[in-house]
Design a protein around this nucleic acid. Structure first.
Length: 283
DNA sequence: CGGTTTTGACCCGCGC
DNA sequence: GCGCGGGTCAAAACCG
């Protein structure tokens, strides 16, 4: 794992140097460095867990292929993935492509063109009862059900971007973790998505919908600190790609921190407070 | 007024 | 055959 430090340095050139208490700044710098070190260690641990999960998952997949399993075995792998998600990666999205028979047991037509089914986990607030996953597409809700295995209601959506678009989506809170929305997508969009970029980079109409980030990318959502880790597809990417994804992840985390108005405001308050204290003591 | 959401009713596959 | 449960329909309500 590559050691990467988040750059927490501040450009304080705008402040006249005679007003700066060097000792205070050095102290602050030390504090930030130690915090930086702590964060880096945490991140390392997360990345180690991530690697361990990848190895475990590929091992499971190998075993799975050997068995040529019964319908039960797929479910077992899925549940093991869900268990692994508890490991300590606190914010994530897990995507996987699943066969038709697993999630949609009642195909209306028996042709061999089985719709592509993918599952996405989205971090949201536990108190947030809405089942809306903001993924850039426009959805029309056509039903809601409470299923037997999960007390949380499951919402059914159809893509309304294009009238002929066959894509459907089911969204339900995870039984294990109420902060996670499980979105199951069926089919593929037969149209372009003009809204995807807009929607991914900004909140529409101030909605508090869970933000989703694209599959096979690692980034931090601007609305929710949801880190995407593609646990399945990453098993087929090489180490160089993995390393670049991890770099990107770290960069995105740093960027999101510095872009966060609350973070910058708190920082500005702290610094200006210190400067004011200093000037008052000099007078 | 048109699009979306809500929600009860209905359909249908599956297991017993 | 029957009941259960997931998925869908469709009318009414809601909203911009």
């Amino acid at each position: 794992m590559e050691q990467t430090c988040v750059d927490t340095s501040l450009n304080l050139n705008v402040i006249p140097s005679r007003h700066i208490d060097l000792a205070v700044l050095v102290e602050e710098l030390h504090r930030l460095s130690s915090e930086n070190k702590r964060l880096t260690e945490t991140l390392n641990k997360v990345c180690e867990s991530y690697d361990a999960l990848q190895r475990h998952l590929s091992h499971l997949k190998d075993k799975d292929i050997e068995k040529e399993g019964t319908p039960l075995h797929k479910r077992k792998v899925e549940s093991e993935i869900n268990c692994m998600n508890m490991f300590g990666i606190s914010s994530f999205t897990e995507c996987s492509t699943i066969t038709e028979d697993e999630t949609f047991k009642r195909p209306r037509n028996n042709n061999n063109n089985l719709p592509k089914v993918s599952k996405v986990l989205v971090r949201t607030e536990a108190s947030d009862t809405s089942l809306y996953v903001r993924d850039g597409y426009q959805w029309r809700k056509y039903g809601q059900k409470v299923t037997r295995d999960n007390p949380f209601p499951r919402a059914y959506f159809k893509c309304s971007c294009a009238p002929s678009c066959p894509v459907k989506k089911k969204v339900q809170k995870s039984l294990e973790d109420q902060t996670i929305l499980v979105a199951t997508y069926e089919g593929e969009h037969n149209h372009d998505n003009d809204q995807a970029e807009i929607s991914l980079s900004s909140t529409s109409h101030g909605e508090k919908h869970a933000g989703l980030v694209p599959i096979s990318s690692a980034m931090v959502s601007t609305t929710n600190p949801t880190v995407t880790l593609d646990l399945v597809q990453s098993t087929i990417i090489d180490n160089a790609q993995k390393s670049s994804i991890q770099k990107l992840l770290i960069q995105q985390m740093a960027t999101s921190l510095t872009r966060d108005p609350n973070f910058t405001a708190a920082l500005a308050t702290a610094i200006s407070g210190r400067i004011l204290e200093h000037t008052n003591s000099m007078e």
